[in-house]
Simulated scan of single mutants.
Amino acid sequence: MYRRQFHRCTHSGVIFDDVIRPGLEEPGDWSAPVSVGCVAGDAQCYVLFCDFFDRVIEMHHQHEITSQTPEADFNHDNLKGSCDLDPSYAVRCEVSVVRGVDDFSFPTHCSRGERRQLLALARRALQRLPGRLHLLEELNQEQQRELNLDPPSSSLFRIGVARDWPDARAVWVSEDGRLVVRVNMEDHLRLVSTRDDADVAEAFKCVSTNLQKLEASYRELRHPFSWKQQLGWVSSSPADVGTGLRIRVHLRLQHLPGHKRLQDVLQRLRLRMATESPALHCVSNAATFGLSEVALSQLVVDGVKLLVAMETRLEGGRDIDELVPTQK
């Protein structure tokens, strides 16, 4: 595969070595969460190096790429049950979505000039939404903490995402504080809605409504979001193709995290769990490709309900075998 592709180069200058460098320099370890180990320098990478990316995408998302274009569904009224999550277990949630902008290299490869153009575009597009844009270089550390903005990791510097930091990086905050848009950080755009309850439907509604408004604005500016037939929306990471959507629910769990069948259950539910503290755990969708936006959100909501049911069983000293779902 390397011999077939090492000499190819996209219009913006991305070569195959640029794509696979993260996995070669930071191969990770078996105890860490599964990562894709590669990045796309621009949208053309998904076409020029499709032999490689298609295999990575299919294995990571556990879904076959076909000639059928992925269907979108942002109808938040179709999402059911998130208001029924037990607040004694489900304490907060976050819904985020990433988008790349056409005709620009992705953050791993873009130049300082491109990044500043992207910021100018974002400024114009976001003017149509009620809120305020803050340049990262004008925010002090306390203000950045309030907005949950962490400094870039060493790996982001190594792969080029944090190049020239914090030049042309910004964060937009809506008037009601329910939506944050990160500009030129890990991706061109990342919309995030965080709630102090587990009402995923409301967070999803906030993100999807504003995303569609932004999409229309970028189209009017003649720079639509990056989209590829058979894959859907694409950005720098193959882990985000399709929908670019992440749904995270933070759960208080005492017994289930140590259960021997937990990893099997999570795999069958197509979920991931990350430990934030001994009692607090973050559950999220493992894939973004193969299901619509509403279907992915519903998958997380239903999965969280089942995990909570398992936790209550374990609290009562009962087993969870009959609750384990059949393999999907």
Score class of each variant (00 low, 15 high):
residue 92 R to N: 08
residue 111 S to K: 01
residue 132 R to S: 10
residue 103 D to L: 11
residue 103 D to F: 05
residue 136 L to V: 07
residue 86 D to F: 12
residue 186 E to K: 05
residue 90 A to H: 04
residue 176 D to Y: 06
residue 190 R to P: 03
residue 124 R to G: 04
residue 185 M to E: 10
residue 165 W to F: 14
residue 142 E to R: 15
residue 96 S to C: 13
residue 195 R to S: 00
residue 182 R to W: 04
residue 153 S to N: 06
residue 83 C to D: 12
residue 83 C to R: 12
residue 88 S to E: 14
residue 159 I to T: 15
residue 126 L to K: 11
residue 167 D to Q: 15
residue 191 L to D: 07
residue 183 V to E: 12
residue 138 E to L: 06
residue 132 R to G: 02
residue 138 E to D: 12
residue 136 L to D: 02
residue 103 D to N: 13
residue 195 R to I: 04
residue 82 S to I: 02
residue 132 R to V: 09
residue 189 L to S: 04
residue 85 L to N: 04
residue 123 R to H: 05
residue 126 L to M: 08
residue 193 S to R: 01
residue 133 L to G: 07
residue 127 Q to L: 12
residue 125 A to T: 15
residue 95 V to G: 13
residue 118 L to C: 15
residue 156 L to W: 02
residue 108 T to K: 03
residue 180 V to C: 09
residue 151 P to Q: 12
residue 102 D to I: 08
residue 192 V to L: 07
residue 188 H to P: 00
residue 141 Q to Y: 00
residue 108 T to A: 11
residue 115 R to W: 00
residue 162 A to E: 13
residue 147 L to P: 03
residue 185 M to G: 04
residue 92 R to Q: 06
residue 99 R to M: 12
residue 100 G to T: 00
residue 130 P to I: 08
residue 190 R to T: 13
residue 150 D to S: 10
residue 152 P to H: 10
residue 90 A to E: 09
residue 161 V to F: 02
residue 162 A to W: 05
residue 159 I to Q: 13
residue 94 E to L: 11
residue 124 R to C: 03
residue 167 D to V: 14
residue 123 R to Y: 04
residue 164 D to M: 10
residue 127 Q to S: 13
residue 101 V to E: 00
residue 117 Q to L: 11
residue 170 A to W: 00
residue 121 L to W: 06
residue 82 S to M: 10
residue 128 R to A: 03
residue 169 R to A: 13
residue 89 Y to L: 06
residue 86 D to M: 11
residue 116 R to H: 11
residue 98 V to C: 11
residue 183 V to S: 07
residue 94 E to A: 05
residue 188 H to Y: 03
residue 89 Y to C: 04
residue 136 L to F: 12
residue 148 N to S: 03
residue 83 C to T: 03
residue 156 L to A: 15
residue 171 V to G: 00
residue 87 P to T: 01
residue 124 R to W: 05
residue 87 P to R: 07
residue 97 V to M: 09
residue 153 S to D: 08
residue 181 V to Q: 13
residue 168 A to I: 09
residue 186 E to D: 02
residue 147 L to I: 07
residue 117 Q to Y: 07
residue 112 R to V: 05
residue 146 E to K: 14
residue 172 W to M: 03
residue 187 D to W: 10
residue 86 D to C: 15
residue 167 D to H: 15
residue 188 H to C: 00
residue 145 R to H: 12
residue 140 N to Y: 02
residue 151 P to R: 11
residue 166 P to L: 14
residue 97 V to S: 05
residue 158 R to V: 01
residue 168 A to V: 09
residue 175 E to W: 02
residue 151 P to M: 12
residue 195 R to K: 01
residue 167 D to F: 09
residue 171 V to H: 04
residue 184 N to S: 11
residue 193 S to I: 00
residue 94 E to W: 01
residue 110 C to I: 09
residue 139 L to N: 06
residue 95 V to C: 14
residue 142 E to G: 00
residue 106 F to L: 11
residue 194 T to P: 01
residue 135 L to F: 14
residue 96 S to M: 02
residue 106 F to Q: 08
residue 141 Q to N: 02
residue 126 L to H: 07
residue 178 R to A: 09
residue 99 R to E: 15
residue 124 R to M: 05
residue 88 S to V: 13
residue 177 G to W: 10
residue 127 Q to W: 01
residue 164 D to Y: 11
residue 135 L to C: 15
residue 168 A to H: 09
residue 179 L to W: 12
